[in-house]
Amino acid sequence: MLDANRLTDIRKRLIRMHYESGVGHIGGNLSAIDALAVMFNEHMTANDRFVLSKGHSAGALYVALWSAGRLTDADLTTFHKDATLLAGHPPASGIDGILFATGSLGHGLSLAAGTALALSLKGEEGHVYCLTSDGEWQEGSTWEALIFACHHGLSNLTILIDHNRLQGFGSTADVASMAPLWERLAGFDVDMQIIDGHDPAAIRTALHASVAKPRLIVLETVKGKGISFMENRMEWHYLPLNDETYRQAIDDLAQR
């Protein structure tokens, strides 16, 4: 079971990877990393599948896979470099644990629902997990997928929403508010839970609950979580780390 120190180490590795590669998308990785780390280290089995619908959090996915021993430290050093498999968004092939190239929002939940229905039709074991962003629910296709998943009663599907309330050019409330998002979702035939997306115990409990319909977990998260000058700051959707901000970030994490 992951303890606080291990989760901090995972965050540090994520930050170092971004620093060494000089690329952004850090904020949304830090909001998603706790759920991904718990899922890949503690929860998912060999039969399970995962779809990262918010493909811009590929960094968090790579580091979660690394933390579970499915990518190496050397792999992470290639992040964003020429000839890497670890592109800025998940690749179409080549990494065990990544089924689909994502990055254009609004695709992942359909891919996850199709995978879940395929497993069901084939009579195969396995559960499908899909992590979406909150801004992504502005995509009509995501709602198409939710309608489909509910209509087919896909009890082997878990939808997680990284609800950090910030998107590309503003807050979700300012850009296209659906607040509170869970009220929009509550009309669907899903088993919905709203939890602290940075609390490993809450994540474990939510993932373990047995349900007979699609499960939807709203992860209440903080963009840039764990690094004081990044938390709830939209610009950290984009900014890379320089020497100074990297040092500050590591110091922040050391004090957790």
Binding site: L99, F100, S110, A113, G114, T115, S141, A145, I147, F148
Partner: peptide
């Protein structure tokens, strides 16, 4: 849109 992505996943 959903139908096509679902079909891709099923083929996968």
């Amino acid at each position: 849109q959903n139908m096509v992505s679902v079909s891709a996943a099923m083929a996968r």
